[in-house]
Simulated assay, not measured.
Amino acid sequence: MPDGHIYELNGVRLPHDDAIITPQVAAALTRGNYERPEVLATPMFLDPEDRVLELGAGIGYISSYIAKVIGVAHVTCVEANPKLAEYIRRAHDMQGLSNTTVKNCVAVSGNADLSPEKEMNFYIREPFWSSSLDPGRDPVSVERISQEVLSDLIKDAGATAMIVDIEGGERDIFRDADLGSVRKIYVELHTRYIRARGIKACFDALSAQGFYYDQRVSHGGVVLFRKL
């Protein structure tokens, strides 16, 4: 697909970029089924007054959709991959959005031991969705990315809802976190990375803070937690 090509699906327009849009992603965008389950689910739990904190924003499709089509009050996107963060800003500009913020950083749990320089290694892989904090699995490059504590991100964003897709980071991110104003958390569980103990750790951490599993919106490995 040549640069300059525009994908259009579900009211969102995305620019082609050979460095970002892999053939697999391009095919899904062209068919109109890229992240389709998530797009179908978000109107079931997000409201126009919501302020959303998205961890692992990818190519900015979901954030563009909820900001433009659902019309949430604000979306703060946290994306560790600097190339993706730049692409997300371009995607948001293409929609003409003024209710989004993009932060190129890594969200860490409340009990994280921050390095003195407040940076950490982020391992870039192909395809982009395999990038993570895990040093294994053959990274193609390593970036030093700034760290921000989750509770601080929530407070700064005034978040009432979260969307989380962070390649295994969901195991620990909610541990000892002050979730403050958040009432809804939509999490993709990466079972192949965190295994059964990691899933339990995620559920336990959220249950301890008064969140329950909402089966009406959850599907497969993507789970909605609501505050009691």
Rank of each mutant, 00 (worst) to 15 (best):
73 A>H: 08
82 P>E: 07
100 T>D: 02
86 E>C: 12
98 S>G: 02
76 T>H: 02
77 C>Y: 12
77 C>W: 00
85 A>Q: 11
79 E>A: 13
79 E>V: 03
83 K>L: 07
94 M>G: 04
87 Y>E: 15
90 R>D: 13
81 N>M: 02
76 T>D: 08
95 Q>L: 14
87 Y>H: 15
92 H>G: 11
98 S>R: 03
83 K>Q: 11
74 H>C: 11
101 T>S: 08
86 E>F: 01
93 D>L: 11
78 V>L: 15
98 S>E: 01
75 V>K: 04
82 P>Y: 07
76 T>V: 14
97 L>M: 05
97 L>N: 02
86 E>T: 12
94 M>A: 13
89 R>P: 00
99 N>H: 04
85 A>T: 02
82 P>L: 10
86 E>D: 14
98 S>C: 03
75 V>Q: 02
81 N>G: 01
87 Y>K: 15
79 E>N: 05
81 N>K: 00
74 H>Y: 11
73 A>N: 06
101 T>R: 09
80 A>H: 13
82 P>M: 14
100 T>L: 03
92 H>S: 06
86 E>Y: 05
74 H>K: 11
84 L>P: 01
74 H>P: 05
77 C>T: 08
77 C>A: 15
101 T>W: 02
102 V>H: 06
94 M>Y: 09
92 H>T: 10
98 S>W: 01
80 A>D: 10
91 A>L: 00
80 A>F: 11
92 H>M: 09
85 A>V: 01
77 C>H: 01
79 E>H: 02
92 H>L: 07
99 N>Y: 02
73 A>Q: 08
81 N>Q: 11
79 E>C: 03
79 E>Y: 02
100 T>Y: 02
94 M>R: 13
84 L>C: 10
93 D>N: 09
78 V>E: 15
89 R>Q: 09
91 A>P: 03
75 V>S: 06
77 C>R: 01
94 M>D: 12
92 H>V: 11
76 T>M: 10
92 H>W: 07
73 A>K: 07
